[in-house]
């Protein structure tokens, strides 16, 4: 409480998109510092988290990577549960991965909270010479669907921090404006943790215990 480790919010953010677009790379870029390298202890413990400071609030971003799980339909519903943010990743050098964005979006809205903040992320910006998805096209698509948009490169870390931070800020704004109210799936995470005093309880409870 009040210590450096305490936090005001836990936001669950999911990474979605076709396999091979670099979701895991993005994640490892963003959470590198907090990822314990000893796999025996990491696995089984919540990992892929990073604490960020926004305004006067400490936010713990809990980022979920499908890492191949996206192929299992059975796992998806558990996976999206309680998510308040999502990064829909595609590969700018593979048009097919962009085309499937619509399908992913639909699936996300089917399973997740309707207030979820979604950002369309064009990854592999470093492969500019192989680009098949024009920035404008993706931007238009994002605008039409009310998504945020950014192009990143996990390889050279371009915009990775910015993308995650922007999503977290947007979620925070939504929560602050009470747009997301108690009763919806994600509200348990969001509103039960307004004061730092409840953090310990929240830690135990987790965000996804049940919906």
């Amino acid at each position: 409480m009040g210590s450096d480790d305490s936090y005001n919010f836990v936001f669950k953010v999911v990474l979605i998109g076709e396999s091979g677009v670099g979701k895991s790379n993005l994640l490892s870029r963003f959470t590198k510092n907090e990822f314990t390298h000893d796999s025996r202890t990491t696995i089984g413990v919540e990992f892929s988290t990073r604490t960020v400071q926004l305004d006067n609030f400490t936010i713990k971003a809990q980022i979920w990577d499908t890492a191949g799980l996206e192929r299992y339909r059975a796992i998806t519903s558990a996976y999206y549960r309680g998510a308040v943010g999502a990064l829909l990743v595609y590969d700018i050098s593979k048009h097919l991965t962009y085309e499937s964005a619509e399908r992913w979006l639909k699936e996300l809205y089917d399973h997740a909270d309707p207030h979820i903040v979604v950002m369309l992320v064009g990854n592999k910006k470093d492969l500019e010479s192989l680009r098949t998805v024009p920035t404008e096209e993706a931007k238009d698509f994002a605008e039409k669907n009310g998504l945020m948009y950014m192009e990143t490169s996990a390889l050279d870390s371009t915009n990775v921090e910015a993308a995650f931070n922007e999503v977290l800020t947007a979620i925070h704004t939504k929560v602050a404006s009470r747009e997301v109210t108690r009763g919806s799936i994600s509200a348990v995470t969001l509103s039960s943790l307004v004061g730092p005093s409840s953090e310990a309880k929240e830690e135990q409870k987790g965000c996804c215990q049940r919906s």
Partner: peptide, 29 residues
Amino acid sequence: SSCRNFDNYRQAYNKRIGFKIPILGVHLK
């Protein structure tokens, strides 16, 4: 539950000795 990176499942899975089929997806992940 995928909560805490499938912690409940992992505990049950590790406890079991003998025949078991893991959730392949989790282990691939």
